Simulated scan of single mutants.
Amino acid sequence: MFTLLNWFDDRLAQVEKILLIILTFALVTLLIAQVFLRYVLNSPLFWAEEVAVQVFVAISFFGVSYLIYQKQLVVIDFITLILPTSLRLVIECVFQIISLLTLLVMLVLTFQWITEPMVQNELSPTTQLPRWYNYSVLMFALGAMSFHQLKHCFKSLSGLFRGGKS
């Protein structure tokens, strides 16, 4: 089961990486086009700033998810590094579980918020698209973060039960 979980986690990370590359390219292209149209042709895209912000937010959330996959988030671990290995593994497992539970709570709350009728009817000022399209990026990113964190939890727990040999 752990092999299957790792395989799905790796595929999800590949999709995130490709998505991040595409979104970054789209953001750069949009901003270059906006600068060219605004300052050279004196005809700016009225919707470019709003779309650029939405793309940047998507890059940020999926970027954090990819960082969770790679275990490259900033951590302050000087205290845990001086602890014995067995205690360090227990603390790591506890923090992994707390992180997973926090992400799952945020995912549920985000879903509840997005499905509220008031949010469903809200329109974007310039593009006139429903705002819940933009907000759903948060829900998908939190789902990906939760999945990556679940894999890390299983890995930490298996390392704990194997006596530090993960």
Rank of each mutant, 00 (worst) to 15 (best):
A141I: 00
S124P: 02
V57W: 02
V53W: 13
E92L: 11
E92G: 10
F95C: 08
L37G: 06
E49W: 09
F147R: 01
S156A: 15
I68M: 04
L103T: 02
L41I: 15
L101K: 09
V137H: 04
L45M: 12
P44G: 08
Y39G: 12
S65C: 05
W47R: 03
I76W: 06
R131G: 06
I91L: 15
E49V: 08
L41D: 09
L20R: 02
A48N: 02
Q70T: 12
Q149A: 12
S43Y: 07
S43D: 14
F147W: 06
I91P: 01
E49H: 08
F62R: 00
V75Q: 14
H152E: 07
F8L: 14
T110L: 04
S156R: 00
P125L: 04
A13Y: 01
S86F: 13
A144N: 03
S60V: 07
A26V: 06
L101M: 15
T102D: 07
V57N: 11
V28R: 09
L150P: 00
Q96D: 13
T24K: 07
A48L: 06
T110W: 11
L83Q: 09
F2Y: 15
G164T: 02
S146K: 01
V51Y: 05
S60R: 05
S43K: 11
M1E: 13
V53N: 11
L31V: 15
Q120A: 14
F61A: 09
L81A: 11
W7E: 10
Q14M: 14
L160Y: 04
V105E: 05
V137K: 07
L87T: 15
S65H: 01
D9N: 15
I18T: 13
L109N: 12
L30C: 11
I114Q: 02
L150T: 04
M106I: 09
F161L: 13
G163T: 01
R162W: 00
I68P: 00
P117A: 07
V55I: 15
L142Y: 01
L23Y: 00
L157M: 13
S60I: 08
D10M: 07
Q112H: 12
M1T: 07
I79K: 08
S146G: 10
W113S: 05
F36R: 14
L27S: 12
V75L: 10
Y135E: 07
E122H: 08
V108M: 08
M145F: 02
L23R: 00
I32Q: 05
V57A: 15
Q14H: 10
L123R: 13
L101Y: 09
P84S: 12
F95E: 02
S60D: 03
Y66M: 08
V74D: 07
L5S: 09
